[in-house]
């Protein structure tokens, strides 16, 4: 079972790398859903003194929200906004993978500096969690489309959840359920926002949204009209 758990966590890290490399939004949503499934499964494998009803319920909630509900919402807004792929992000895909590799090395280094926990799920869970957090943040920073940024936020949240789950924090799961609700509401609101933005401007490119303003002093010509 140990081996299988490690394999799951390694798969989680690979998903981060794949996410950094892929431009198709539909595909990104799918692999983030898959990551949600893995993250939801980790606490079940982590339970040392028997699998209780509470753990199974939490895992089911997490999987239902992260693997089914949120991807469906995101896919709906992707269809409504009609964006297929992120065409030119701030950081290109090849460079993103290089940065991903650097983040991987850094997160392993950071995890050696953490105080040694007596009971933790697996010794690679902490670096995997830090790596997931870092790549989520990087996706938020480096992509322009609002949908991809939401995906980055989800990855970031997956990382935090994995960290809590991996370190077997006391009462971590109750807090986790609260956070899950927040994430759900956020993605819901983002879906509506993305819909309205794309209705208004025919694009959801957040980079170009920075030109919005009430005054029309320094605006480019096409917006003044």
């Amino acid at each position: 079972m140990d081996n299988f758990r490690d394999l799951l966590i390694v798969l989680l890290m690979l998903i981060n790398l794949m996410l950094l490399a892929s431009s198709r939004i539909r595909y990104c949503i799918k692999i983030v859903a898959f990551q949600g499934l893995i993250v939801g499964l980790v606490p079940i494998f982590a339970a040392e003194n028997g699998i209780g009803i509470g753990i199974i319920l939490t895992a089911l909630c997490v999987i239902a929200v992260k693997c089914v509900l949120l991807p469906i919402l995101l896919q709906r807004s992707q269809i409504i906004a009609d964006v297929r792929r992120e065409v030119d992000p701030f950081v290109g895909y090849t460079a993103s993978i290089f940065i991903g590799i650097a983040a991987l090395v850094i997160s392993f280094w950071i995890s050696t500096r953490l105080p040694q926990m007596e009971k933790q799920v697996s010794h690679i869970a902490a670096p995997a969690a830090i790596f997931t957090v870092l790549s989520g943040l990087f996706i938020i920073m480096s992509r322009k489309i609002a949908l991809t940024q939401v995906l980055g936020y989800l990855v970031f949240e997956n990382g935090i959840y994995l960290f809590g789950g991996a370190m077997l924090l006391e009462n971590g799961f109750i807090i986790e359920l609260g956070i899950l609700l927040d994430v759900f509401v956020l993605v819901f609101v983002m879906g509506i926002a993305v819909f309205h933005i794309s209705q208004e401007f025919n694009h959801i490119d957040t980079d170009r949204l920075s030109q919005l303003g009430d005054w029309n002093a320094e605006l480019p010509e096409e917006i003044k009209k």
Partner: peptide, 15 residues
């Protein structure tokens, strides 16, 4: 990109 991903896999394996 695919080839760099292959390097990333082997770096992860090495780490």
């Amino acid at each position: 990109q695919v080839l760099i991903l292959a390097s990333a896999l082997s770096i992860l394996a090495l780490i």
